[in-house]
Computed example of a mutant assay.
Amino acid sequence: MKKITTFALGLLLAGVSFASDMTPVGTWRSIDDKTGAAKAQIVISDKGGVLSGRIEKLLRKEADQNAVCEKCTDDRKGKPMVGLEIIRGAKKADGKDVWEDGKILDPESGKNYTLRLTPKDGGSKLDVRGSVLGIGRTQTWVRVK
Rank of each mutant, 00 (worst) to 15 (best):
K111D: 14
K47G: 02
V16Q: 08
S30C: 04
T5S: 06
I55L: 05
A38K: 07
M81F: 06
L11D: 06
K47N: 02
L105G: 00
Y113H: 10
T114G: 08
E62D: 05
R76Y: 11
G123W: 03
D74S: 06
K39F: 01
K125E: 14
M81N: 12
K92L: 13
A67F: 14
L117I: 11
V82I: 15
I104V: 14
A37K: 15
R137G: 10
M1L: 09
G134R: 07
L105E: 04
I42C: 08
T138S: 10
R143M: 06
K77G: 07
T114Q: 09
W99F: 09
V128Y: 02
G78H: 15
G89C: 13
R29D: 10
T6M: 05
T5A: 14
K92Y: 02
V132W: 01
T5F: 05
A38E: 09
P24S: 02
L13G: 02
S17H: 01
D33N: 15
E108F: 00
D127N: 12
K91H: 02
E85I: 08
T27C: 02
D21N: 05
G15W: 01
A93I: 11
G130W: 07
K61G: 07
G48V: 09
G130R: 01
L12R: 03
G134S: 03
P24F: 10
K47H: 05
K92P: 10
L133I: 03
T5Y: 00
S109A: 05
S109N: 00
D94M: 07
T140Y: 14
K77I: 03
Q139W: 07
S17C: 05
T73Y: 06
R29K: 15
A37Y: 10
